[in-house]
């Protein structure tokens, strides 16, 4: 029983026919070819598959694609480009927050929602915002630094 869904992916409206047992992660990676969203555990415990649905970070490995009908989905590919990277992407590069880079897309998306809602987070708020994104390379130190740096820059931009 396939069903057509219509949703926004990275700002563009998209129609897609999906089976009800298809996971959003697989649809994003395979049907939409957006491979920045990663499989890390499949059980919602690592955060590598994080995407934003209606601006909130969620786990695409535990989301049925059929449920995003009429919703707005944002992946890492939707927040910045080579020419115009998101301040978080810029800050991650500059501070050395990217080691292997596998957790990076999910990490940046979690951080984006944080900064969108709370432009000047404390260190504890930053840590809690990314608690669902595991990283085995960095020890999180430079990731937290990067989010602070982006926060300053984005705050500066708003003033």
């Amino acid at each position: 029983m396939k069903k057509e869904i219509e949703f926004t992916i990275n700002g563009k409206s998209r129609k897609l026919t999906v089976k009800p047992n298809e996971l959003l992660l697989n649809v994003i990676r395979e049907d939409l070819g957006l491979t920045g969203t990663k499989y890390g555990c499949g059980t919602g415990e690592c955060g590598a598959c994080t995407v934003l649905i209606d601006e909130e970070p969620v786990l695409s490995c535990l989301t049925l694609a059929i449920t995003v009908d009429k919703k707005k989905v944002t992946t890492i590919e939707g927040i910045g480009t080579d020419e115009n990277p998101h301040p978080l992407q810029q800050a991650f590069v500059e501070t050395g927050a990217v080691q292997c880079g596998f957790c990076t897309p999910g990490m940046i998306l979690s951080a984006k929602t944080l900064l969108d809602k709370n432009p000047n987070p404390t260190e504890d708020e930053i840590k809690r915002a990314i608690e669902g994104n595991l990283c085995r390379c960095t020890g999180y130190i430079k990731i937290i630094e990067a989010i602070k740096l982006a926060s300053v820059r984005m705050g500066g931009r708003r003033k």
Partner: peptide, 9 residues
């Protein structure tokens, strides 16, 4: 409970 992502869902 859980993580931000889990609590969002």
């Amino acid at each position: 409970m859980g993580t931000v992502q889990i609590r969002n869902m």
